[in-house]
Nucleic acid binder design. Sequence first.
DNA 1: GAACGCAATAGTGTCGACACTTTCTTGACG
DNA 2: CGTCAAGAAAGTGTCGACACTATTGCGTTC
Lengths: 257, 257
Amino acid sequence: MTERAETGADSEPSLANDTETRRSADSSERAYHTIRKLLVEFKLKPGERINEVQLSRSLGVSRTPIREALNRLASEGFVSLTPNRGFFIRSLSTEGLLDLYELRSIIECAAFRLMCERAEDSEIDRLRQYWEAIVDGYRDQPPDIILAEDEGFHMLIAQLSGNPEIVGQLASINARIRFIRRIQIEHPSHDKAQITSHSAIVDAAVRRDAENGAKLLREHIEMTVSATQQALKDALLKVFAPDNGAELKRRGRTRDA
Amino acid sequence: MTERAETGADSEPSLANDTETRRSADSSERAYHTIRKLLVEFKLKPGERINEVQLSRSLGVSRTPIREALNRLASEGFVSLTPNRGFFIRSLSTEGLLDLYELRSIIECAAFRLMCERAEDSEIDRLRQYWEAIVDGYRDQPPDIILAEDEGFHMLIAQLSGNPEIVGQLASINARIRFIRRIQIEHPSHDKAQITSHSAIVDAAVRRDAENGAKLLREHIEMTVSATQQALKDALLKVFAPDNGAELKRRGRTRDA
DNA sequence: GAACGCAATAGTGTCGACACTTTCTTGACG
DNA sequence: CGTCAAGAAAGTGTCGACACTATTGCGTTC
């Protein structure tokens, strides 16, 4: 689940992202991942209009797979489509972000409760092991790894809920807030509070203390939300500062991943 | 079925939309709605493979808009896509259905709580009015109307939560279980329990009793789930019985069990 | 007679082209 | 000078065609 291979490795997207629908490494699929990455990394800026021809040149494929990818991204809320004007990058306003985090919190807390009810002991133990295996070196990892590990932790809880719809839904939400999470991780406000939170959550899981665990989880998410808000402001400043983006708008192809 | 587009691509009155991203009445959009309707009405049977060429002939457009629609439907969980074999109609097994209902219950209960916290008095009153306006003739309406009214009731709660992500998510879930709901409405097991449930939920909303209302809502949904399971079995029997369906595949062979 | 392989067919994935719509440019008019 | 309109340019929406993959059907071999 945890989507590795998103950073540099271009050839193997793998990953069943929101449903368990498998896709191969055809152009359409690659386009999907590449564009999503561009969005997540702010290479394509919020509010901007997407030029299909330019994109298709950049990626070296025709417009057909580009449009298929964009349609998919539209269903997932990354971009929006206005009839005869094309796709626009959805600007994630602060309030929109809060809404997403709120939904995430709802779903994760419910997942935790279900996990406490249903999961086997061995599964709960897998959660414990997962966290213990990474907790030591957690802070020393590069941001991408921290991000993946953090996301993996939360996704594992979702999986242990036993409800694949929850897994899919959470995966979709995570994809949309991933760039924010990453920004937050790199921001100075990111500290070890995360670590203690996760450990406490694992403890609650082991004790099958649904009530407490859900509460911890909710607080954990709320905490990161407030930390994230400042990080978001800083990030937006950075993104719209001169000299940063604008590499995709050049006539020539942008070499990418 | 509802409409056919012949050679003349004239301006046609469009079709009702249901989610956030607005689209116009282009082929792609029409294809989306038409195919979704086919799915919802079991005209295309679960598990079946979708033949793009056949479909495009049926709808009188080329494969491109068909594929765009199918991609969208895939993101939403209606169909699945396997790499070089095409789109398949997702068979909603009983357990898959339970998962969906569970997710729905989670989200709706949360929405109710948020509504109790945040909604204006006037908004809560709108919910009350909505229900009171339809409760009298509720049982005498044709199934489609009952379905719409019921769905509208639940969607209104989602809207009053003030979180558009919740609204969108619930709308997507509703679309996927709509055909089941409809079947259940037509089934003898559908009775006035629905009505009393809804009324009690409205009462709780007016009192802003989040805890009680969420509980009622959960029980309400759980109740319909169990009622639905039997209805689903009956419906599947009906669908796979001879002489029904099979109008879209005129010259094909029907070779399944 | 059954398993295997090979040819023929059906079907998806992608492409380039074109029609139609929106946006930009330019020049006339007040 | 600013406004507006007509034409040009850019861009999306859809189409038909073709390459490549999966599947089916047929003939061969054991």
